[in-house]
């Protein structure tokens, strides 16, 4: 099932939650909605679920406008950010709730609930009440409940944000596995970029109620189309440079091709990832290492340039031994196109 948002607008009083959102989730894909807090991710998801109505614009499912379909007739399973299991029902009864609403017989309900609890790895918890389960277990049951009616779309609103780091990783892998197994179109809201990059087929980065870029995780990381995306996804260095206006930029004494806005000229910021920055120990170098952090295979150096700019550089740990804090160094960039942003003022 294909889901499409078409220029959605929504305001709450003076707040513009959605400001012309255009986005498509294709059949069977896991689309992550990523963005800073308050950028409208939840609002977009709730519109798809039918809990919120757009001021203007359309929500299309398989090409049909579903704006007038009430929430309980939309074929969408949802897992909420807060724990949302019905406190008065056991795990099995929670999972079977939707089936009861559809007037499915008791025996079939019990069988399907057991099957789903098995699917999320909690067959032995069928008779537990929500307050007798951990947060991770509750979210698993919530996931089983969302899948019980075999919905065409699965909506996940930061289902992992209340869990601790280890359970989070475990559960997100499980969500991914289930999603691929069932080939169910899934929209996954998160503000954790690692979560989005590691689980999604495509990631849509939102900002102030608008889509900034929607692309595969690798594309988003390697070739972000805007400075906002570049800085929101992963770590980014900002180096002062001078664009020449003919498609190149001078930075760190090097001349590099510019990606995108080639006609910009004058003072700019050059955006490069730490792993693209190379630092070598150099007695005569003007830069100085101010801090190092060991990350296993790589070590992240914080280097201060002669003009005071701080640069982060990831270099293989085996080369980091002669680059302790205080060492003089030279910083270089690879001969690759770089993203630039003109100074605001």
């Amino acid at each position: 099932m294909t889901v499409e948002f078409r220029s959605l607008h929504k305001s709450f009083g003076a707040t513009k939650a959605l400001d012309g959102l255009d986005l498509t989730a294709h059949q069977g894909e896991l689309l992550a909605l990523l963005g800073p807090s308050g950028c409208g991710k939840t609002t977009a998801l709730r519109m798809l679920a039918g809990f919120e109505h757009p001021d203007s614009g359309q929500v299309l499912v398989d090409g049909e406008d579903i704006s007038e379909v009430p929430a309980h007739r939309r074929d969408a399973g949802m897992v909420f950010q807060s724990y949302s299991l019905f406190p008065h029902l056991t795990a099995a009864d929670n999972v079977a709730f939707g089936l009861r609403m559809r007037k499915v017989g008791a025996a079939e309900r019990r069988a399907r609930a057991a099957e789903l609890l098995e699917l999320v790895g909690l067959p032995q918890h069928a008779d537990r009440y929500p307050h007798q389960m951990s947060g991770g277990q509750q979210q698993r049951v919530a996931l089983a409940r969302a899948l019980a009616l075999r919905p065409k779309v699965l909506l996940l609103d930061e289902p992992l944000s209340a869990l601790d780091a280890k359970v989070r990783v475990q559960l997100r892998e499980e969500i991914r596995r289930l999603q691929q197994e069932l080939a169910i179109t899934t929209v996954f809201v998160t503000h954790d970029q690692e979560e989005a990059l590691s689980t999604a087929d495509r990631v849509a980065v939102m900002r102030d109620g608008r889509l900034e870029q929607c692309a595969s995780p690798a594309e988003l990381y390697d070739t972000p189309s805007t400075a906002f995306v570049a800085e929101f996804v992963g770590t980014m260095n900002r180096l002062p440079g001078r664009a020449t206006g003919d498609g190149t930029v001078e930075v760190l004494g090097q001349r590099l091709p510019v990606r995108g806005a080639a006609d910009t000229s004058g003072a700019v910021d050059v955006l490069v990832r730490p792993e693209a920055v190379d630092a070598t120990a150099d007695e005569d170098g003007s830069a100085r290492v101010t801090a190092t952090a060991f990350h296993g295979a790589v070590t992240r150096l914080t280097v201060t340039l002669a003009d005071g700019t701080t640069v982060k550089a990831d270099i293989p740990s085996h080369r980091a031994s002669d680059l302790a804090a205080g060492a003089a160094a030279t910083v270089t960039l690879p001969e690759r196109p770089v993203l630039i942003e003109a100074h605001a003022a």
């Binding site: 929430a71 309980h72 807060s82 949302s84 406190p87 709730f97």
Partner: peptide
């Protein structure tokens, strides 16, 4: 959390009235 309970029930296919009677009032 009345709102979440209502919405959870509605996303499970319960009409607003049934959501009140089967998801909210029992709690």
């Amino acid at each position: 959390d009345v709102r979440t309970l209502m919405e959870a029930a509605r996303s499970c296919g319960a009409s607003p009235v049934r959501a009140v009677f089967q998801a909210v009032l029992p709690n």
